[in-house]
Nucleic acid binder design. Structure first.
Lengths: 335, 335
DNA sequence: GTGAAAGCGCTAACAT
DNA sequence: ATGTTAGCGCTTTCAC
């Protein structure tokens, strides 16, 4: 490295005695240059430790080797696992990723769509429970892939088999003798929640177990899933509402429920059984570990990343716009 | 919005009957235009829902309204809390952030430095245990701020008071009667680990408690902190090495130790006391909750973000290159 | 207060 | 195989 300031193609051209076009061809390996010139040019490039100015390149080719990743909350393990897998994939392909945390805030999400568009990202992966239709905010024709969300038509989406997830979770409780099952979920209407609930309902129906209104808890997120779930279960106990099973649609809720029961000296799984959802370390390392529905985060991340990259590269893509990833039940100590 | 394709300043100029220079002045509020022209121009801008092409702007002004955030592993709560706080801060200032997960991989970190440089980020925040001196890979003169790492000279850094953290953790164990204290940490030599260890040693010295070599466990990260810590503690037990206190330098290790003890029916805190480090929900929600040293993640994130932004804006910055954030002991059920 | 024009670093069409 | 050149969209200097 001869100097600290970055060098441009123009200067490389001068230093190596060729034209800028040739330098560009060498750099991008576009052919139409001799081996000899390649060496000359590469020598200078190495010597000066040249790196391309991506702003200029992006401006010129309208691609940025950059994607946007929209996520409700990196702070939640389930999402952070997806983030790290997606980042890993795109890093390996030479892309950088903008992390866009929405905190379920529509205005923020909107603003991020605009900003990603203006920064010329080549594509977007959107993991978001409530989200908005990007079409209004993205002017350029770039691909967008949704994870666990098919609320908007016309996009590609990848999701876990939430219907089956809801069904299996419920079935597990029923198979273990539960008759009064609490559904512990949020109050959002999104395809993933809907599917879990449908699975729950159909399992209940199949085994002729009644669904009680007072046991159907659709929590409004206030203090975080854990605290809200704890409080909700405490409410049931305080009001002497009986229950012997809990299906929680994420693991913070499952864990909150578990802790509430323990604090009230209600034995798990003897008196009450619990099934959680996601398959993160929350259910794995708590005490006792919680039976859960495992979402395959690696596949979710891989399939969506690969699909997005194919769409970016305009490779022919399977016409099926919906990829469903199987879930599985992990039996542990709460059922 | 009249059309889907994005519109350029040139077209806005034509549509509003002024020059591109004037449009640019209006957009950037640079003065030297009349209120009347402002209205004319803004009307077209709104009508066509114009957004600036950041690649072009970046190229021109050599700034991108973008920062890089280098982090060992978003998947670890401690880091993800920092990430989400930093992202929130920069979003509010109109910046986007590139998430760069290094997984402690030097090559990846190197590669990210280059790529961030070539994408014209305006600054970098680096949270990284082992890291490399960025100077070699960043050609442009942009500010870089380190969190919890002062291994490289000449940069600004923000860190928790790890010396005091190590000291307080150890003191807490000693005050609770521990005589044979296990130090459970990693085998990296970084300023933050060194400081924790110094705090540990000085506390031991102050109270005249001997440090035993067989209790000084500097783990090589293999299966994750939790698993490695579990195994290390199991090793001690299997080899009949006595101990009555554990200072773990993060909470996964503290939790792993706790679980290992529980599986061996060793009562915590009766037989062995544990103090962890970081102050995430890992120590808060496990059973029993673990006494820990709390790092103020919000302050860490805020101070480093604000400092970086000031440096980017070339505002005069306190000459002190080292900001130390106080830690505190959170007493819970394991001491 | 406004406009013309240069140029940031790059690619690609066209010419040779 | 190589060079010339236009132009991506923007800001900014300079002239008026």
């Amino acid at each position: 490295m001869k100097q600290n300031k970055n060098i441009s193609i123009k200067q490389i051209a001068q230093l190596s005695g060729v034209s800028v076009a040739t330098v560009s061809r060498v750099i991008n390996n576009n052919g139409r240059f001799s081996e000899e010139t390649r060496k000359k040019v590469m020598k200078i490039i190495d010597e000066y430790n040249y790196t391309t100015n991506m702003a200029a390149k992006s401006l010129r080719i309208s691609k940025s080797k950059t994607i946007g990743l929209i996520v409700p909350d990196v702070n939640n393990v389930f999402f952070s696992e997806l983030v790290s897998e997606i980042e890993k994939y795109f890093f390996s392909k030479g892309y950088s990723v903008f992390i866009c945390n929405t905190n379920q805030d529509r205005a923020k999400e909107k603003s991020y769509f605009k900003s990603l568009d203006s920064k010329l990202v080549d594509g977007i992966i959107c993991i978001s429970a409530i989200s908005i239709d990007p079409a209004e905010y993205i002017k350029r024709n770039i691909p967008i892939v949704f994870i666990n969300n098919k609320d908007y038509k016309g996009y590609y989406y990848i999701e876990s088999d939430h219907y089956k997830g809801g069904f299996c979770a419920t079935e597990e409780l029923i198979n273990n003798g539960c008759k009064r099952i609490v559904l512990l979920t949020n109050n959002r209407n999104s395809s993933s929640v809907d599917n879990k609930i449908n699975g729950f309902k159909n399992a209940m129906k199949k085994f002729n177990i009644p669904i009680f209104k007072e046991l159907t808890l659709r929590l409004n997120l206030k203090n975080g899933s854990f605290e809200d779930a704890m409080q909700a279960i405490n409410n049931l106990i305080d009001n002497n509402i009986e229950f012997d099973g809990i299906f929680a649609t994420n693991e913070w809720r499952a864990h909150g429920a578990l802790v509430a029961l323990q604090q009230n000296n209600i034995s798990v799984p003897d008196k009450v059984k619990i099934v959680g959802y996601d398959g993160t370390y929350v259910s794995k390392y708590c005490n006792p570990p919680i039976t859960t529905i495992y979402q395959d985060k690696k596949s979710l991340a891989f399939e969506s990343s690969e699909l997005l990259l194919n769409l970016i590269n305009e490779e022919t893509v399977d016409n099926n716009k919906d990829i469903i990833i199987p879930i599985k039940l992990i039996k542990r100590k709460t059922t």
